[in-house]
């Protein structure tokens, strides 16, 4: 799965290798395209500039959050608390913004706070050896309950206009879209090319081997959880600045959507494989499906059933593929 960088590939071999390595990502991209064309023919308003902006820009924060989740799942861990974390960080950021703190403070604190909060989960997972699923289940309860207890459920309004990052544009493109693309490419290249990034695949694929070649696995686990927290902070900036108000509740099922994006994007839940290109594309696919349901007049209440089915089908396909490669080898 980790592509070797030895021989310069030639001609059709390069194409074939690209297809083999990024087959899943291409599949997801094709699915998006098929949906856009199919539903677009049924209802042209689906592919109107306005709706496309809503789909791509409005859900960019999910792609950003899924980048960090991808790293967590690649090292064979999981984080159920990311939705609650984003809710907490949004309230922290919004409170700073309305209390007159400089805007850059309101923008950077969530990123640092995200990393700091997730460091706790990481330490419990890496050093106390508690399964990440239970640690983050507990963290989810603490963050969710703590948020509502602290705020009493009030909303933050009167956000200063210069704080609303998600409403800004770069070269005519909405800021969230630019961020999602830039962060995906940066993180994707980092995971593929840097020694640290590549070590994550080894940790997820074979932790024993990683230890044997001298990688300090527990320290990397904490680092990955912190990086994931920082990405949650970045996602928060895009999420919290979309509207004029910040609700002091956690977005329902956000962790599920983020995890699903990673899984549907080809990140194996068994660790060791998957790219952030896949997870970001899957986040877009997700948003497209959600919007398409509305345009073909299917009640949005069915959305979660679709999500569940998609998770199960993707993981099933992953299991079958693994069985086949094992037999082939």
């Amino acid at each position: 799965m980790i592509g070797s960088t030895t021989l310069p590939p030639s001609g059709t071999g390069a194409v074939r290798r690209f297809l083999r390595e990024y087959g899943h990502e291409i599949l997801v991209a094709l699915a998006i395209l098929a949906l856009l064309v199919g539903v677009g023919l049924y209802n042209p308003r689906f592919v109107s500039a306005r709706n496309l902006t809503t789909i791509f820009s409005g859900n960019a924060y999910i792609a950003v959050a899924a980048i960090g989740m991808t790293m967590v799942i690649v090292i064979r861990e999981i984080d159920l608390s990311v939705g609650a974390l984003i809710g907490v960080l949004a309230t922290i950021s919004g409170t700073l913004a309305v209390s007159g703190a400089p805007i850059w403070v309101a923008w950077t604190v969530p990123i640092i706070a995200g990393a700091a909060i997730n460091a706790i989960s990481g330490i419990l997972v890496a050093y106390a050896r508690i399964p990440s699923i239970v640690v983050t289940l507990g963290m989810m309860a603490i963050l969710q309950g703590g948020l509502i207890t602290a705020t009493g459920g009030t909303w933050i309004s009167n956000l200063p206009p210069e704080y609303l990052l998600a409403k800004m544009t770069v070269l005519g493109l909405p800021m969230p879209l630019v961020w999602a693309i830039a962060l995906t490419i940066a993180a994707g290249l980092w995971m593929r090319l840097s020694p640290f990034g590549r070590s994550l695949y080894l940790i997820g694929g074979n932790a024993e081997a990683a230890r044997a070649v001298g990688i300090e696995v527990p320290r990397r686990i904490v680092a990955v959880f912190m990086i994931h927290g920082a990405f949650a902070g970045l996602a928060t900036l895009l999420f919290a600045t979309q509207l004029q108000v910040i609700q002091s509740t956690t977005p329902p099922n956000l962790e599920l959507i983020v995890i699903t994006s990673a899984v549907i994007g080809g990140v194996s839940i068994l660790g060791g494989t998957g790219t952030v290109f896949g997870s970001s594309l899957a986040a877009v696919l997700f948003a497209t499906i959600g919007s398409a349901l509305i345009f073909v007049n299917v009640s949005a209440y069915w959305l979660r059933a679709f999500i569940g089915t998609l998770i199960l089908l993707t993981v099933m396909a992953d299991m079958l593929r693994r069985k086949r490669t094992m037999k082939g080898a």
Partner: peptide
């Protein structure tokens, strides 16, 4: 199918709740 219990039931967590929401509207 051989899925890890965690991920299988995370999937059905979404699926069963989704069915409940879809059926009840």
């Amino acid at each position: 199918v051989g899925m890890p219990p965690l991920i299988a039931t995370l999937g059905t967590l979404a699926l069963y709740r989704g069915l409940a929401e879809g059926i009840s509207q």
